[in-house]
Design a protein around this nucleic acid. Sequence first.
DNA 1: GGTAGACCTGGACGC
DNA 2: GCGTCCAGGTCTACC
Length: 306
Amino acid sequence: MEWMLAARPPFSLGAVVGSHGWVQLAPFVRDEATGGLRRVERLASGQVVELRIWEVPGGVQVEVVETLTEAEQAELSDKVSWMLGLVQDFSAFYALARQEPKLAGVMENAQGRLLRSPTLFEDVVKTILTTNTAWSGTKRMVGSLVAWFGSPLVASAPTAQDESALRYSEAPQAFPTPEQVAAADEAMLRGEVRLGYRAPYVLELARSVASGALDLEALRHTDLPTAELRKRLLALKGVGAYAAANLLMILGRYDFLPVDSWALKMVSHEWHSGEPVGAAEVEAAFDHWGEWKGLAYWFWDWSYKG
DNA sequence: GGTAGACCTGGACGC
DNA sequence: GCGTCCAGGTCTACC
């Protein structure tokens, strides 16, 4: 079955998919045939489906092979809308960006939305797995986590033994739920999934969410001030200044910059003749963009391409 | 509040 | 093929 979801204009699915590296992380798959997205998703009912999403005039078309109940279809619509930021409004940012040649074209290209996962749990895990590692390491760790703990798209009838046994699978799988990760132990996350020292961070996060002690998903729709929301994120083990800023961007708050080694290099060449700079210089470079500084930084047309 | 060192892995490099 | 070095953010202990 398939259905259409409307998007606030301007909208470009290609711009969302290309907004950052998330599309390269399982279970996201870039759909080369349509320029859109594919993704295996587990529904609240436990059913596992493969979503296909492509752009149509006015929004996106969503397709799954399976027949869904009304509730399941509504759940998927909510997830797709959140992932693609279909209702996000960037008109205030575009009005400011119009004055800045380095941001020329952001409105015409419908830039602003950042691809996000259906749950904040998934985005926090992925963000933790971007820290202190190369991008290839992030892809490997996320892929391994999905392969070990995700729900398979096509499951044979499980036996009692299968239910308790963990099996690595490269078949298409959904991102694991907090409960599925919480059932692991740290040694397994270190030794098999090879998360390294990040293993206890991911495990603690999963167990906090699974036990109900931490309502992470509530932060997706909170009206907390950005500074307070940042404090909540920084309270998560493994989430520091960079990771918190990255997550705030995903949550639609752009007041803080995700300053990493790449940002330091770019700002160094853009405004300091290649001389080493610190986080303060990066912040200063974009401070005048106020609540939009994160987006200005993200879509800046850097002179240095190295 | 600021800083040094440890954490873990994969890739680059030299032998 | 093996060993060494380095890059990549965050945490903890210490000052």
